[in-house]
Design a protein around this nucleic acid. Structure first.
Lengths: 238, 238, 238, 238
DNA sequence: GATGAATGAGACTTCATTCAT
DNA sequence: TATGAATGAAGTCTCATTCAT
């Protein structure tokens, strides 16, 4: 499989081109890079394609970035910063029930079918071997922060009596975050593997329903003995 | 890891010349290929490394496989067949409660920290752009089948009155399967990003606990109104 | 252009296969080789294809021939011997007018549209760089002998007063032989370059007519002074 | 032969680094390519040799040409354009007798022993299987145009009463053009196969003499009955 | 800053040839 | 004799990176 794999002619969206504002150049390049990388994968993308997408030539890229990997790193950093910013905004000043804030967070993070976000996630899952440092960085700042946030919201719900206290909130948070990420990535192949398709709203809402159901406090949650209670964070309640 | 060692750059060792083992060769090659691909990634692996790992020279690879991609495809097919075989075995003739069979399945599929399996999963998530066909195939035969199995076990539990009937079993199954896969992949980076680390037993047990908790039948399921009940599979219970 | 150039699936004619008469093996191989070489060209043909065409495997070829080039050499030798044999037969015991024997010769050598012969000629013209020794050998035993024969027939006609004596018989013979060879080769491309097509009968008959017209004795051949009479073989007449 | 030397195996000489001559480069490459291809054959030539002959490295070739075949195609196109240009020039404004213009044309096209031209012809006859498209193109623009031109000059001579009208001018033109091409190619082997040698002047002059003799009008061209008169262009006059 | 020509290390793939069986 | 697994030299093409202009 020689060059691109997404399609014979790259589905990359071409932007206006050549608006000479030198101070914005690096940002334009980062946007272009993320677009092309996400569309074709890191290895399949030639620097020349990124340059063309940004309306400059190959050499110019090297004025701003030392090499291809730095371009990737910075492009993803910029992307992640924006995403985190948006995510933080949504909780600023909120104080409703934990369940409501969970909903807000999941919606903000995963709601709205966004092919660009999906492609970036696919890009990321592909760089584990190509640019492990970048991948790790993303793990630490993306998924990890994501499930920490979820876990802390669960903890707040537990504190408020909204949720039962004997669930493994961290694992729940991990699985939910990771599962949603994966499902979103898979949607890219829903055309050719229809069994993969699932509506974004259903995905999020049902996941949330399922999370809240798992966390709902029980007067009597009798039978289910935690099998290996040792690794629960909070010791099992009565 | 029997023969080679998948070192950083395996020096081509001159073997004593031609050792004929024509019948086993293809399998040895497939095993070697999976090992090296999983360790370094598809693109980062030179055919010569695979050959060396199998104790032959690169030309021999082309005796059995038409090109690098076919080698990947076949190596993954063989891997998947074995894995599916093991998974099917575990349920053969079982008839306990659904919850018990769910436990068996998850344990069989994800239990036991197995670096080889983890690396294969990492390999797979990296080929979305390099060999999309192979990737899609894996999706269809791996994760999709996985969550279908889980969903069907849930359905059995529902039928048996063991689980509530108004949960979105499919989404639950998807998220759980995908989430576990992702978490397992992430463990590869647990050394350098400690926040990623989670014990395999805890991961599985807590996930199961959380799944069963979410599915437990409720006398009164009071507050939580399903927000968009339209996409529930079974209309609201009682 | 990777492998074959004649067509995606080789137009090689498959013969009966595996008639175990070991003493004929080499001849079968030579026939098969000529067939495949002629169909695809020398370089484009893998020894394995030749072997398959002959119903044996690669290794067997090396029992009879030291390498690919010898196979080519011998295959062409065998072909040429047969062709020369046929050509010699046609003149054996003939004693009519030279013009009639010229006709017989040209008919025998070039008559009857024969794709196999045409392909062999194309093969030959392609090996000038691949196997120059073989090519030279063919030149010396094929075209050179051909035009010598024609020149000697012309000389006989001159001696018999049938032809004029002041023509450059050798050049005429060379050009006619070479020209016919070339035209026959070109017919291979008549499908895609229609301007190349010419009927085999017309080609031969008109060439002969034209040759005889050029050689006819003239009462007065007045104006045309041989421009550079120095290189005529026989000094200019009258 | 300006730059390189087309030796048996040109050692890659390290040049003083990058000499920019962007405008001329493609032409230099084309010239170098034609030189090396003609000297060694298409298949026997490594792209690296062409590059070295042009004073660059192999990568540079891919800057201008997509692959080896395109390089061949373009090199031959350039060669043919030039040759056609020269040929057209020679007839511009000429109006002498047809015989004189035939002489001019043959001289222009085939006169002057030119090893480079001879090698290009040898190259061409070798690519029938390697690059059939290129070969066909050459046939259509070279030989075919050549014999059309000759045939049209003959037709003019016929119209002017200079030549007889009942000859098959097209076949005559085909055989003469093709025969001369072949003879020129063969001269390459005149050293090792002396029987092949023929002086260029003699070849052309005698061929012309022979052509004109065949075409000279006859008061009585009695005996020779065209065997298959059906394919004569103009029906034979009495 | 920007260009784009040029470099050159790499990697895939082909296939004539060898040789243990 | 015959097989066909294995070798390994060779060649095409790619593309990140450099650097003269």
């Amino acid at each position: 499989m020689p060059r691109g794999t997404v399609g014979p002619t790259p589905p990359v969206v071409h932007r206006p081109r050549r608006q000479r504002r030198p101070d914005e150049r690096p940002f334009e390049l980062l946007d272009a890079a993320l677009r092309v990388f996400a569309a074709r994968g890191y290895r399949n993308t030639r620097l020349e394609e990124v340059a063309a997408e940004a309306g400059v030539t190959k050499g110019a890229v090297y004025h701003y970035f030392s090499d291809k990997e730095e371009l990737l790193l910075r492009a993803l950093e910029q992307h992640q910063e924006r995403a985190l910013g948006r995510l933080n905004d949504v909780l600023r000043g909120r104080s409703g029930p934990a369940s409501e804030r969970l909903r807000l967070v999941l919606r903000r993070a995963f709601g709205g079918e966004d092919p660009a976000r999906r492609d970036v996630l696919t890009l990321l899952q592909g760089i584990a071997h190509e640019a492990p440092g970048v991948y790790r960085r993303w793990l630490a700042n993306g998924p990890v922060k994501g499930w920490r946030l979820v876990a802390s919201l669960i903890a707040e719900g537990v504190a408020a009596g909204e949720f039962r206290s004997n669930a493994d909130a961290e694992v729940a948070a991990r699985v939910v975050i990771t599962g949603l990420l994966g499902q979103i990535i898979y949607q890219q192949y829903a055309d050719t593997v229809p069994a993969l398709r699932i509506g974004n709203d259903r995905l999020i809402d049902s996941t949330l329903e399922f999370l809240l159901a798992a966390l709902r406090p029980v007067e009597a949650l009798p039978r289910r003995q935690p099998r290996t209670p040792g690794h629960r964070k909070q010791g099992g309640g009565s």
